[in-house]
């Protein structure tokens, strides 16, 4: 896989998406270095106050610095989402390849399972897993992984079936190459670009899910800084401090737009 290079340069949408995400990541990582502060320190005197050097985005209703809450929120759900996507991607890749290679009942069982999971709303599965697992972050990771692997599995299986049945793989086998070589030179170069797209969409789905459940108060708990939770907390103060509410709204939008653009194509 080191030898495969993309034949065409990335389309401009993808580059813009990657740039947006880089900016957000830089903010999330370097934010506290530039302006030190805590996301939890309250000061009711400053409730809904405007920006100042120690809090460049102003304060929320409890007088906590929005800048620092946003920094932490932009670390929390993207990290959970990336962990879930990595788990789901690895599981989907392994199981999809296995299904295509082995066929028979292994494939049938996996397909039936994946189809059934596809029928259940992802947020619902996440909610149930959250109720089972101790710890909200762990629960989100487990629930989202459970939901997201299906897409990677389906992609890998479909690609692997087509590739493995094709003349190129038949030729490699006739020439005496083993399965590891076939995977590395035939399958992975076909699957990898699809995996990137699916991973970007998967990350967006996961972040949306965490925010949506936070927004309806069944996800992350206060006082954790989380995008959806921040929005619902600040919603009642819309008239007094519209910018306070817009801060997490715009951050969420930028994050998801970046991921959508990075994904390039779209799900089919």
């Amino acid at each position: 896989m080191t030898t495969t290079t993309l034949s065409r340069p990335w389309p401009s949408g993808r580059i813009i998406g990657a740039a947006i995400l880089t900016l957000i990541a830089a903010f999330a990582i370097l934010g506290p270095v530039i302006v030190p502060g805590s996301p939890f320190a309250q000061s009711l005197m400053k409730s809904l106050a405007g920006p100042e050097p120690a809090a460049p985005f102003g304060y929320d209703h409890l007088g906590r610095s929005l800048y620092h809450r946003l920094v932490h929120a932009l670390r929390l759900s993207p990290l959970i989402a990336l962990a879930a996507v990595a788990t789901a991607g690895a599981a989907g890749l392994v199981l999809g390849t296995l299904a295509a290679l082995r066929g028979g009942w292994v494939e049938r069982v996996l397909v039936v399972l994946a189809d059934a999971l596809l029928a259940l709303p992802g947020l619902l599965m996440v909610l149930i897993v959250l109720a089972i697992m101790p710890g909200t972050a762990l629960g989100f990771w487990a629930g989202l992984s459970l939901v997201l692997w299906v897409e990677f599995f389906r992609l890998t299986r479909a690609t692997a079936r087509a590739t493995l049945a094709g003349p190129a793989v038949q030729a490699a086998r006739l020439l005496g190459f083993g399965w590891p070589y076939v995977f590395r030179t035939h399958l992975w170069p076909e699957v990898a670009p699809l995996m990137l797209t699916a991973a970007a969409f998967g990350t967006a789905t996961a972040i949306m899910g965490i925010a949506a459940l936070g927004f309806v108060s069944v996800g992350m708990r206060a006082p954790t800084p989380e995008l959806g939770l921040m929005m619902v907390e600040l919603l009642p103060y819309w008239r007094e401090a519209p910018m306070a509410l817009l801060t997490p709204v715009l951050a969420t939008f930028a994050l998801l737009l970046g991921l959508t653009l990075l994904a390039g194509g779209h799900r089919t």
Binding site: G13, A211, A212, F215, M231, W238, F253, L256, L257, L259
Partner: peptide
């Protein structure tokens, strides 16, 4: 259309509802 649909796709439904509530009703 591609740009617009990408932008709309990047807005989660709860956020869309929030925006509509803020704009159309509040």
């Amino acid at each position: 259309l591609l740009v617009i649909s990408a932008a709309f796709k990047a807005v989660p439904q709860f956020l869309m509802a929030l925006i509509l509530i803020l704009v159309l009703s509040v």
